[in-house]
């Protein structure tokens, strides 16, 4: 009995995974290989060509999603790292206040926040309308319905998920280690490059994973901020399911996206795995 205890404790977790991950995935895998339509029903035909058709038909959106996701991730890193650094090293006794402020937007629905950005960036909204009325911007200038708006929205929405893991990593850096570097003739810049940055890379690694995946798959930002020319793969999957009721194509696209992301993540982990990163930084 005692030897079984750990397995019994893990059981709820495994059940959760089985019921809510494995079963739906299997169902979706099966659907992705069927043919038919919503009225006559779908029949299993092992039609692998669903994948070819889906990828062939929507490669533009797939590539665009990866590019937007990557751009947003880079932007989050550039904005988020200094914020995490500042909170970790200069936050003093108010650290938890700053972290709370960072998470405050999550008390408002994700879709609502994105729609608010739509208002803010509208062609004659608060920002652009004012600037246009002052004659600082040409009347035809617009931000909405551009790639910039979508990437900005993605960046805004997942920024905290980049900041938090980096903050946790930086928080664990012993300030004495930084002093030791300075004592050993390193300038502030060198101490950062040789000691602080490498020690924070596990946080960067986690932050990139936690933001790139959802940002790439997100349909909301492209729909609300992107207009017609910036559709991402998430929008296509949504439309195929809910509007066209083409379940096989939607399933095939979902699997394709999942495969691409998994391959990407494994490659990323392989090249930039924590140990390797540390090794490289120590040189």
């Amino acid at each position: 009995m005692r030897r079984l205890t750990p397995y019994l404790l893990a059981l709820p977790g495994w059940m959760w995974l089985a019921i809510f991950l494995v079963v739906p995935l299997a169902a979706m895998a099966s659907v992705s290989l069927q043919t038919g339509n919503v009225i006559d029903g779908f029949v299993m035909t092992f039609s692998v060509s669903n994948y070819g058709d889906a990828i062939g038909g929507y490669s533009t959106q797939l590539v665009r999603s990866l590019v937007y996701g990557a751009c947003a991730t880079v932007a989050m890193l550039v904005i988020g790292y200094p914020v995490a650094y500042w909170i970790a090293f200069k936050g003093g006794s108010r650290k938890s206040v700053y972290l709370f402020l960072l998470l405050l937007p999550f008390f408002v629905s994700f879709v609502l926040r994105t729609i608010s950005w739509g208002f803010l960036l509208a062609d004659d909204g608060v920002l652009l309308g004012t600037l246009k009325s002052w004659g600082l911007l040409p009347a035809g200038f617009h931000v909405l319905a551009t790639a910039f708006a979508v990437v900005a929205g993605l960046t805004y929405n997942w920024l905290p998920f980049m900041i938090l893991p980096i903050y946790v990593a930086l928080e664990r850096v012993d300030p004495r280690v930084v002093e030791a570097a300075q004592d050993l003739y390193a300038t502030r810049g060198a101490a950062f490059r040789k000691v602080v940055l490498p020690l924070s890379l596990p946080g960067v690694f986690a932050g990139v994973l936690m933001t790139f995946v959802p940002a790439t798959a997100d349909p909301v930002n492209a729909q609300v901020l992107g207009g017609t020319g910036n559709t991402m793969i998430g929008n296509i999957i949504q439309t195929e399911y809910l509007v066209n009721n083409d379940y096989p194509t939607a399933s095939a696209l979902s699997f394709t996206l999942m495969a691409v992301l998994l391959v990407g993540i494994f490659a990323y982990a392989r090249v930039l795995g924590t140990e390797n990163v540390l090794e490289a930084a120590a040189r």
Binding site: R176, V177, E179, A180, Q182, Y185, A186, K194, P198, L199
Partner: peptide, 25 residues
């Protein structure tokens, strides 16, 4: 004068070794 330009070195309480580097580094 900042610490990196002083010709003294320090052995820290709890050592403050660089955890990501080998002994040699």
């Amino acid at each position: 004068v900042p610490p990196n330009r002083r010709d003294v070195n320090m052995v820290f309480q709890s050592y403050a070794l660089f955890p990501h580097m080998s002994v040699w580094d």
